[in-house]
Design a protein around this nucleic acid. Sequence first.
DNA 1: TTTCGACTGGACTGTCAAGTCCAGTTCCGG
DNA 2: CCGGAACTGGACTTGACAGTCCAGTCGAAA
Lengths: 210, 210
Amino acid sequence: MRRQKKAQPREPRPPTARGAATRARIVEAAAGLVYRRGASATSLEDIMEASATSKSQLYHYFADKDALMRAVIELQTRRVMGVQAAHLDTVDSLAGLRRWRDAMVTINKAARGVGGCPLGSLASELSDRSESARALLAHGFELWELQLRRGLGAMRDSGKLKPEANPAELATAVIAALQGGLLLAQTTRSSRPLELALDMAIGHIARLSG
Amino acid sequence: MRRQKKAQPREPRPPTARGAATRARIVEAAAGLVYRRGASATSLEDIMEASATSKSQLYHYFADKDALMRAVIELQTRRVMGVQAAHLDTVDSLAGLRRWRDAMVTINKAARGVGGCPLGSLASELSDRSESARALLAHGFELWELQLRRGLGAMRDSGKLKPEANPAELATAVIAALQGGLLLAQTTRSSRPLELALDMAIGHIARLSG
DNA sequence: TTTCGACTGGACTGTCAAGTCCAGTTCCGG
DNA sequence: CCGGAACTGGACTTGACAGTCCAGTCGAAA
């Protein structure tokens, strides 16, 4: 947990296809375990078993567990962005936003609340414990907000939102509602809080529709 | 982490004043550490040091670490309820809600985002890992919601909210916004997301004012 | 003042985790 | 086909942590 001393930057580029595949296998297995159990509750041995690799492979591709967790954050950020993009790039109207809301609720119901948001749960666990992880997660949320902001900006430009609507601020509030809703859903084992939070957020935007 | 076998229920009542004081000292020290570092990152040795107690004292008052964490959740629930009560019992109008909002933001700014909500961070960490902890936390949120609901119900009854406003649902949405805002504030190290989330929630309620 | 149970100190155990090391194998360019 | 780098297996070290145990001390009630 305390490296940083070595002069060379580590985290070597994987030059061969086999190496890249092994590295990817490790990160994917780690992401799955971390999503279900959290970062500190996931041991390297768990990851070794799930990815069919050995200690030396882990340490060949990652300087330490922290570095591996950073790679997990990056993978989850990409995944979340992918899922969000699939539902958000059609968001150019209130109806589109409601479709997005329904998709989020459906996903949550399928998971029965367990796990929550891959970024949100990592953010809660790591933000105060690793500055590099915190920065990475903040960046992930920023990308997400940007994506949402684009849709809201398009709505404003096409006259669907009043000119005084602030897409960036709206996007932040919407993501906050989603995260809070997911947290309560996870705790109460019910999707209802998520539905209420997202409906509130959409109502807030609807109030600004032009 | 796996007891439950012993027939006797354990968790003995502390009959003497000295015992009660020791027990309270342990739980308070544990709560402080857990708030700052999370449950799994807080070791019993840390708690022993912070509370000036020994292993045998910990195990005299608590069956295992899980039981101690449950006591921590209960203490934090009481504390949060106390803080919330101090700001919420005057909430019988939109102006009162806005004062509450300002108080939450001020608290968050003072902590510079670190820690988040004592219940929220525990909920995120423990909900999927301990069913008893999850239930306790859900109960805490329920109490909180009830408290907020009371104020909103009073507003509705006094005609400050439209009759169709649903205090219970509004309360849940407000708490979700607060939790999500706190999470983003913790990650971005800025109180702005919290402000935006709470403003959205209050705007949502304002829209229902009669 | 005796006695018993509440309470305390701290050594000890077993387990598990991160991280190290090195001997070996595989792969690829020349 | 050969030399070196990329890659892999797994034993080993070190330390931390939860939980156990027992020999005590303290305090209040009889």
